[in-house]
Design a protein around this nucleic acid. Sequence first.
DNA 1: CTTGTGGATGCAAGCGATTTGCAATCTTCA
DNA 2: TGAAGATTGCAAATCGCTTGCATCCACAAG
Lengths: 157, 157
Amino acid sequence: MSRPCPQHQHPHRLIQQPLSDLTDKLRQGELKITAPRQAILDVLRKHSSPLTIKEIHTSLGKLDCDLATIYRNMHTLERMGLVRRYDFGDGAARFELSPEEGDAHHHHLVCTRCARIVELDDCFLNEFQDQLARRHGFTQISHRMEFFGICPNCQAP
Amino acid sequence: MSRPCPQHQHPHRLIQQPLSDLTDKLRQGELKITAPRQAILDVLRKHSSPLTIKEIHTSLGKLDCDLATIYRNMHTLERMGLVRRYDFGDGAARFELSPEEGDAHHHHLVCTRCARIVELDDCFLNEFQDQLARRHGFTQISHRMEFFGICPNCQAP
DNA sequence: CTTGTGGATGCAAGCGATTTGCAATCTTCA
DNA sequence: TGAAGATTGCAAATCGCTTGCATCCACAAG
């Protein structure tokens, strides 16, 4: 569903080797392995919570690539299913590495004071979405859901 | 919680008359009753689904006030609790009149093709939020949740 | 190892939504 | 009616993000 062009299989991809590394997945998606690309994935690997483009950019440090490059890459990686996009409603998209194949997606609990992010368990909305589909005749139902609050550290003493 | 300056009660507000009209609520919030303000509320009253700033602006028709005025007013009205802000992820905030006092808030099911919006029933997340609060020590938990899909009319025949 | 080709990048300009500074205007209460 | 402060209009600025274009680089074919 998020894998592009399955009909244009290149020879080396017919060998179904285990794809343990993100680099392999890049190759599998016909993407060139470039320095910015690898660096971005490294940054995401090092962080557990979703990062904004700006945060990714500063985390890149010495490999100071253009913001446009990061924006373009996030689109590409998202289209490939390697990263997941979140929207916490503050106007800046956030990205994190997709959960391992087969894992359900999850949601977040965000502290509105310090921006600390708690990753919640698997999503429980599948059944509800099925209900919605039946009741309203919609197909391909998806959702966005995030929780906000004030974390223990930020509550007045 | 969203009512500002309760200590500066003006005489006429001490008479607890029923506030049937939004105009009264404006007055109660120490807001001046201006033409743009009334017109914006009229527009929202006439529409059942959330409107973007642009939609509000064109709906205003002959009372063609500045976009900045609408933006500023939406902030003010939101802060007063008179309107509610929604974010469907397309980069434009949407607003609708707050549900009547005591009514639970609701969520939306948005068609990603024609933008048709189905208003869903009362929200069922209160209990889950309480769990979150207990488990993670957060307070004042709120959430955003919207559903997306393809409505019956937009599905290929 | 050299090379051709298309994808990828950097740079700068552009875009849409939203915000803000400021002077002029209007609502409201005394 | 008049003063004080809120509100508006206008224009410029911001912010996140996108795009056009020339250059560059990864990579596989020779």
